[in-house]
C-alpha cells in the first residue's frame, strides 16, 4: 500500500500534482478563449461606449462563458498562489495563515464577480 501521510510519505510517483498542473492549463485555455472573444468584439469598428460594451455581455452564451471563466480564474489563481507560497514561505504556521487568507480573498472576489454577472 502506498504511504501518503506522515514523514515517510511517498513524495514522488505517477499523477503527483498532475491534477493541479492539468487544471491550471485547462482553466488557462478557457480564459484565453474568453480574452480573444472579448478582444475581437472590442476591435470591431464603431464607437466604443456603454451600449456596445454592455452588449458584449448580453447574450446568454457569453454570460455562461463569463461565469465559467470567473470560476476558472479562482481555481487557476489558487493553484498559482499555492505554488508561490509553498516555494517561498517555509514556516508552516505562516504558510497556513497566508493560504487561508488567499482562499478567503479568492472566494470573496469570485463571489463578487458572480454577483455582478448575475444582475446583468
Amino acid at each position: 500500500m502506498t504511504n501518503n501521510h506522515g514523514s515517510k510519505r511517498l513524495v514522488v510517483g505517477a499523477h503527483y500534482g498532475l491534477r493541479d498542473w492539468l487544471s491550471q492549463r485547462v482553466t488557462a485555455l478557457l480564459m484565453a478563449l474568453f480574452t480573444l472573444v472579448v478582444l475581437l468584439q472590442l476591435l470591431l469598428p464603431g464607437e466604443l461606449g456603454y451600449d456596445r460594451w454592455a452588449g458584449i455581455f448580453a447574450p446568454q452564451w457569453m454570460k455562461v462563458l463569463t461565469f465559467v471563466v470567473i470560476l476558472s480564474l479562482g481555481y487557476h489563481a489558487w493553484v498559482g498562489v499555492r505554488d508561490i507560497l509553498m516555494d517561498y514561505i517555509k514556516p508552516v504556521g505562516a504558510r497556513l495563515l497566508l493560504q487561508v487568507l488567499a482562499i478567503a480573498w479568492l472566494a470573496g472576489c469570485t463571489g463578487w464577480a458572480v454577483q455582478v454577472l448575475w444582475r446583468l
Binding site: 460594451w53 455581455f57 479568492l106 464577480a113 455582478v116
Partner: peptide, 17 residues
Amino acid sequence: LFVLLPFAIWMFDTSVT
C-alpha cells in the same frame, strides 16, 4: 493580478452595470 483582482472586478462592475 491576484492583488489587483478587486480593482479588476470593480472596473467590470461599474462599466457594465
